[in-house]
Each structure stands twice: as structure tokens, then as C-alpha cells.
Simulated assay, not measured.
Amino acid sequence: MKSTLLALAFAASSQAALRFGCSSISIQRLDPLVEPGRIPSAHVHQIVGGNSFNATMGSGANNDIADRATCTSCFFSEDFSNYWTAVLYFKARNGTFKRVPIKANSALEGSTDGMTIYYTQKDFNSNGNAKITAFPPGFRMTVGSPTTTEKSDVVNGLSYTCLQNINTRGSETQEFPTKPCPAGIMAIHHFPACWDGKNLDSPDHQSHMYSTTKKGTFVEAGPCPASHPVRMPQLAYETIWDTTKFNDKSQWPADGSQPFVWSMGDRTGYATHGDYVFGWKGDSLQKAMDSSCMFQACGNGKPLLSQNAAAINNCKVKSTINEDTEGWLTSLPGAM
């Protein structure tokens, strides 16, 4: 990405693309996709979207979470999907940990923290000649792995930007930035967009999908293969971690190494990962992909319904786990 996404949004002949904010509904140790029913899960997640999120969300085509949710923390009020990632912590020189706060991205309505969500087509200039098929009810997937330890194993589309300002784009790395970032660290998750057309999920939550994502871009690298022939929206997350509160290098490790760690204990950044459970109401997402609207201009019934800041930020899920994830901690939640 050599220029900002906002600039790309106004390129000529654009087809539909959604860019919107979702506030956090919960920060706790639950993972109904990878660890269904386990309370608590192995590590802390930050979750946005619909309030039907819980430890056992079910699966299958008849499992439509949009029917169970009563609110969503996303700008588009018909989106009851759930989106989640690991949580970033700062490890001080004295060995204690503190959760890094999240801040909203630029040019978004309503959300105060959480994530920026994208559903794009071929790229920001065209959807080509291919039909973009919305995810069906019961669809789920993940990208990345919390056990990745080698840079060579990091999949395309997972990266970090050391923000010089809120609109910095480009210069992405697959590992955590090694110097203090003036405006925070943006973690980026691009999901695969080619579906096998049959399975709503797979045992590893990834094999039913195929990625044509180029490194660091919203542009597909090539056509979908015969094994995964159905082109779906390119789903992506951006999370801005406000690391500016921890830019005092006197608190960093004595050896000068970077001090940030994912909630599962990864200090390299290679183990970043994201989870997704589809939950759009009815055919609303398909209507958006069939339209020519861009970003939040797709709201107010054109063609999607949207909601105000109060509704976005009032939707929450009560924590089911009684443990501290805030303040200065002697160990990461769940650490043995």
C-alpha cells in the first residue's frame, strides 16, 4: 500500500467495498471457534461485533448467530458477525505486564476502540468480471496461528505498521516494530477469499479457504484455483494498539529489544492470528457486494442499515471469567 486507503477509496470506477469500525464488546479468555466450550480459553482475546458471542456458539448452516444477537458494536447494524484477535501487552523491564489500549482508526463513525473491518472485492478499483459471493450462515474461518515461531511460516496478509501518524500506510513488517512508534502499532489481518464452495468450516478452520492475498495489499495475487473456485469478499482487520504510552525506552528491556508481547506469549509478532464467525442479517452483505457503494457511504439504507455512536459503544458482552486482564500483572492471563 503506497498511499492511504482513503485515497484509494476515491479512485475512478470503484465497486463496492466496506470499511467500518466496531467497538470492543469484550476482552476476555474465550475462543468459541478454536476452543469451543472451554472456559477460560488459553489466552485473552479482544472481540467485536454481535452480542451472541459466547463460549459455545455452535456450528452448521442452521446456526445463524444473527438470529440470536440483539445488538452489535459495528457501524452497520445488520452485521452481527464476530471478529477477534489476540490482545497486545507491554512487558516492562521489571517483568510485569500491562494491556496496551486500543484506539479507533481515522475517518470512522462511532467506534472508540476495537477494530476497523474491511470487506473488499477484487481491489479498490474494480471487482473484475467475477461474482463476489457473500459468506453464508454458519461460515467460520481463521488466519494465522498462535503457535507460529518462524518468519518463513507467516502467511501473506499478516503484518504490522509502525504508525508515524494515524494515516500511515506501507512499510509493513511481519515482526513487531523494533523502535518506538510515534502513533502506535497497527496490526493487520487479511483473510483468504477463495472458498471451496462446500464446507462452512474445516477441522483446522482454514483448509476450506485459499488465499490469493499479496503481501501487504488489498489486491488479489491471482484467480481462485479449481479446488477453491468461489470468490468471496476479501475480509481484513486493522487494530491500532496505542503503544505511545509505553515509548519510554527506560522501561524497555535492558538489551534494547522491543517490549511488546501477544497474550499467548509471542514476542516476535509471528504468531498473530484472527478469527471470524459470519453473522450478517439475511442477504444484507450480498446486497452490499452487489452494489457500487464505498465504505461508510453504504450506510443509511444505501443499501445497508447503520447506527449511531451510542448504539455502537453500548453493545457489550459480560465477562464469564473472573480474572484480571487490566492493570500491572505479574504474568499473562493463562500463563502456566
Rank of each mutant, 00 (worst) to 15 (best):
L6Y: 12
S13M: 13
Q15E: 14
I25Q: 07
I27S: 04
Q28N: 09
R29E: 05
L33D: 09
I47E: 09
F53L: 10
G58P: 00
R68E: 15
A69H: 00
A69C: 05
T70D: 11
C74H: 05
S77T: 11
S77W: 10
N82V: 07
L88H: 13
A92T: 09
R93H: 11
G95T: 09
K98H: 14
K103F: 12
A104Y: 04
S106V: 13
S106P: 01
A107F: 10
L108D: 13
Y119P: 01
T120Q: 09
F124N: 04
S126Y: 01
G128V: 02
P136E: 01
F139N: 11
G144Y: 12
S145G: 04
T147K: 07
T147F: 09
K151D: 07
S152P: 00
C162R: 03
C162M: 01
C162W: 08
N165W: 11
I166K: 10
N167S: 08
C181K: 07
P182I: 12
I185T: 04
I185F: 02
W195M: 13
D196Q: 02
G197N: 10
K198H: 06
P203Y: 07
S207D: 15
H208L: 11
T217W: 01
V230S: 05
P233C: 11
P233S: 13
L235C: 04
Y237Q: 03
I240M: 14
T243H: 05
N247G: 07
D248V: 12
D248H: 03
P253Y: 09
P253E: 09
F260M: 03
V261G: 01
G265V: 05
R267N: 07
G269R: 02
H273P: 02
D275M: 09
D290L: 06
C293S: 00
C298H: 10
N300M: 14
N300R: 14
L304Y: 08
L305E: 14
V317D: 08
N322H: 04
E323V: 06
G327S: 03
M336T: 12
